Amino acid sequence: MPVLSRTSSATHARASLGRGDGVTIYWRPGCPVCAKLRTALRGHGDRITWVNIREDADAAAFVRTTNRGGQEIVPVAVIDGVAHSRPTPRQVLAALR
């Protein structure tokens, strides 16, 4: 998984890299993989920041910088400054422990 660049979509890169107390997950409505991840992570919402890329152009740009070819593949979880495209619930839960 790529390490986030501090220059990529600066607003979200700085926010994600600066957080040490949880996980940031970028998602979009209608994405079945996002819905499955969200369901699996119920009960941990206080430690996860969910960012809808359809409501935030900077977030969408950030997601495109983390995926090969500039694709908007979601979900993207930022864990300890590293972006994980399509993380498993197990990966996210491990980061929250």
Rank of each mutant, 00 (worst) to 15 (best):
G18P: 06
G69A: 03
T65Y: 06
S5V: 05
A77L: 03
N52D: 15
G43K: 08
V92K: 02
H44G: 03
M1S: 11
L93R: 15
R90W: 15
P75M: 13
R38C: 03
D21K: 12
I73L: 11
A35L: 09
S85V: 10
P32G: 12
T7N: 07
L4T: 09
R68C: 01
T11L: 13
R68Y: 11
V63N: 00
L93K: 12
G81N: 01
G69S: 03
A59F: 13
A13K: 01
P87H: 09
R54I: 02
L41R: 08
V3W: 12
V23E: 04
P75Y: 05
L93E: 10
P29M: 11
Q91M: 10
R86F: 06
I79L: 02
A15L: 14
I48P: 04
C34N: 08
V51N: 02
I48K: 05
A60F: 10
D58L: 08
E72M: 10
V92I: 10
P89Y: 06
T66C: 13
L37R: 03
T66W: 05
I25S: 00
D58I: 04
W27R: 12
M1T: 09
V92S: 01
T39F: 09
A57C: 09
K36T: 12
S5T: 08
Y26Q: 02
C31V: 07
G81K: 04
L93M: 15
R68I: 04
